[in-house]
Simulated assay, not measured.
Amino acid sequence: MLTRALIVVLAILNLGVALWWMLRGEPAPAPPPPTTGVAQLQLLPATASAPPGASIASTPAAALDDVTPAPVPPPPAAAQAQAPTAESPAATAVAPAPVAAPPAPAPAVAQAPAPVPAAPAQCVSLGPFTDRAAAQAAQAKAGGTLRGARLREVADAGATRYRVVLPAAASREDAQATVKRIVAAGLSDYYIIANGEETNAIALGQYRNREGAERRMAALSAAGFNARLIASGGDGSAQWWLDATLAPPADASAARQRSGAALQRSLDCARVR
């Protein structure tokens, strides 16, 4: 019986606690925390009356009281930086690492002046002389103004016309083949002799002076053609010329005056070698 009584008592107590929990009111919410930096509104007691002479417009301004604490100014930088003591590790002064000096510029290497190219050789032909002995005497007089001098005989000194001719070919076809080679070498002024003693020979120009004919022969020789010079209209007398290379700094005029020659002519140095 006692056990049944205890069970009934416990059931009644649990039922009472459940009813109390269901019927209790909701707890009032906690007021929000005050906002920092914003003025707080304080309510005055209802019984307090406004002081005499105070206007209604000034009452709200008086009622508002800023309770925000004034910001504390930061300490000066000098105060924040505390001097290290002898006991603290910061007291040991750290010497800055030495800055490496920039490398000294390498001394400029003096460049040797560029060699001056040698002036091209100049060759000259001095004359005319009546015989070989006169040409040899002129060579001795010229002395050091000439180098590599040689004597040259001109058998047709009185000629009035000079022709440059290639020897006659064996046939017309051979002559025409030679003409094709002449054209391929970039040369002009030619024709094939059709009759006479020089049939199938190739004429390559006719000149009034020997210098022009010799220049034509030099061009043909450079292209690989063996031409010959034929003079006509002269008396058959011979002349001698002195061909040489000018020794610097002598010029053609000085060499001509020293040798006693009447004329001086420019000469291709390839003919002197």
Rank of each mutant, 00 (worst) to 15 (best):
A135P: 01
G143N: 06
G144S: 14
R150A: 02
A142H: 12
R150C: 00
T145G: 07
A149R: 08
A142L: 06
A140P: 09
T130L: 13
D131H: 03
F129G: 02
L146A: 05
A138S: 01
D131P: 01
A140V: 03
T130W: 14
G144Y: 14
P128W: 15
A149Y: 09
G143C: 07
A142M: 08
P128A: 15
G127D: 06
G144N: 14
L126M: 06
V124E: 08
G143I: 05
R132G: 15
S125A: 12
D131M: 00
L146E: 10
L146V: 05
A140T: 02
C123M: 07
R147F: 09
P128M: 13
S125M: 14
L126W: 07
R132E: 13
A140E: 05
T130H: 15
R132L: 14
A134K: 12
R147D: 08
A137V: 09
T145R: 11
A134M: 09
A137P: 04
K141R: 06
A149F: 11
Q122E: 05
D131E: 07
A135F: 04
S125R: 14
K141S: 01
K141T: 03
Q136N: 10
L126Q: 04
A138T: 02
Q136P: 05
R150S: 06
K141E: 02
R132V: 15
R147A: 11
S125I: 10
A135D: 00
Q122V: 14
A135C: 08
A149H: 08
Q139A: 04
Q139T: 09
L146C: 06
R150I: 03
R147G: 10
L126E: 04
F129Q: 04
A134G: 09
Q136V: 05
S125L: 12
G143W: 07
A135H: 00
F129A: 03
G127W: 01
V124K: 00
A137Y: 02
Q139R: 13
L151R: 05
Q122L: 08
S125Y: 10
A135Y: 02
G143V: 05
F129V: 04
C123P: 08
R147C: 11
L146M: 06
D131W: 00
L151Y: 03
G148D: 10
S125F: 12
A133Y: 12
A142V: 04
A137E: 07
A135L: 08
T130D: 10
T130N: 14
R147S: 11
C123F: 03
A142S: 10
G144L: 15
R147K: 11
Q122W: 11
P128H: 15
T145F: 01
A137M: 04
